[in-house]
């Protein structure tokens, strides 16, 4: 009995000894150097495109560590760290502080806009009397022969009832246009749902993987992503997806799926990309960093980070724009009617 009693008393002490064997990683101090080191290390270990983009992250550390001496306040530090992240050329990489958010926008600012939002609200297209179902604005155009949907953000949800209503209105139309120009993304689940209405069978449409170690090329086996047809609602006529460089992130994923839809055509400009699913982490001073962690690929294992080419490349003509025409919508109409 006394032996058992002794063992019971020794149990917590034994566990205390075992605790020491599970060593936690060191945490950088909340200094300028500590914050730079923490940010550099997060990207070094967890960012998924360092090798794909041929970025020499070690030399970038050297370059920016030297410049720490010039930093005199939190704004200077933020600007320096934000500038360091610009080297990643990734719209999914941001540094968040209580006073600012760093961002990389060249994935669309360096390219033609190919979208004029005021054009789509002219009477030729949506006009003033369009309907709104969930996050989707819609109206029949081209003499009621084409259904036109404008979807500005995959963060705006929609339901099956919304889509059923839209398809009912477009029941007599010869085809459908889904305009996702300027759509910077949102929920990937919305992208999968919207695509599901245009598939008649389950199809492999993309892959995703994730970092499995600290090495720049330590990735998991890619997981196949399938698009399954919606069980009750289906659009069986032609559909044209309109894209531009601002079609990013979840929109990129939607376009990637629609590339494999049986009666879909992608028209407009190349999408902006954003193929890396982002995650977040934190710095010692409380700033948050968002970064691409899980690369996505199309069904042919082509990385979608730099965007997806359209089936039909169309640019918005200045001449048409001046005359109140949206060249890309007009092309989509002709693709359906011709």
């Amino acid at each position: 009995m006394s032996k058992l009693f002794r063992y019971i008393l020794l149990l917590p002490a034994l566990i205390s000894v075992l605790q020491a064997c599970m060593k936690e990683p060191d945490i950088q101090p909340n200094t300028n150097k500590g914050n730079l080191d923490a940010l550099w290390q997060i990207i070094d270990r967890r960012y998924c495109y360092l090798d794909y983009k041929n970025i020499n992250w070690d030399s970038i550390y050297t370059e920016y560590a030297v410049r720490l001496d010039t930093v005199t306040n939190k704004y200077g530090l933020f600007d320096l760290l934000g500038e360091m992240l610009l080297n990643l050329k990734d719209g999914h990489v941001n540094l968040y502080s209580e006073f600012d958010r760093s961002r990389y926008w060249k994935w669309y600012t360096d390219y033609p806009e190919n979208f004029n939002s005021s054009l789509i609200y002219t009477n030729r297209y949506l006009g003033n009397n369009y309907r709104i179902a969930g996050g989707i604005r819609y109206r029949k155009i081209a003499g009621d022969r084409i259904g036109y949907m404008y979807y500005s953000s995959f963060s705006n949800s929609f339901s099956d009832a919304n889509i059923r209503s839209v398809f009912e209105v477009f029941a007599g139309c010869k085809g459908l246009i889904i305009d996702v120009r300027g759509n910077g993304g949102g929920l990937v689940s919305n992208a999968a749902l919207l695509a599901s209405y245009f598939f008649d069978e389950k199809k492999l449409t993309s892959y995703i993987s994730h970092k499995t170690g600290n090495g720049h090329s330590d990735f998991s086996e890619p997981t196949a992503v399938y698009t399954e047809p919606h069980k009750k609602i289906k659009w069986e006529r032609p559909v044209v997806i309109l894209t531009n460089r601002m079609s990013y992130s979840a929109t990129n994923e939607f376009v990637c799926r629609m590339k494999y839809a049986p009666k879909a055509t992608i028209a407009g400009d190349k999408t902006g990309g954003g193929g890396g699913l982002p995650l977040s982490s934190e710095l010692p001073n409380g700033w948050m960093v968002r970064f691409s962690a899980s690369p996505m690929y199309d069904a042919g294992m082509i990385n979608t980070e730099w965007g997806i080419d359209p089936d039909v490349k169309v640019n918005l003509s200045k001449q048409d724009e001046a005359n109140g025409y949206d060249t890309i919508i007009e092309k989509a109409v002709s693709l359906i009617l011709d």
Partner: peptide
């Protein structure tokens, strides 16, 4: 889960 895997991959894609 692995530190870099998303809940989308875990629970939507069942990986």
């Amino acid at each position: 889960p692995m530190q870099n895997v998303s809940y989308y991959e875990l629970f939507v894609l069942d990986n």
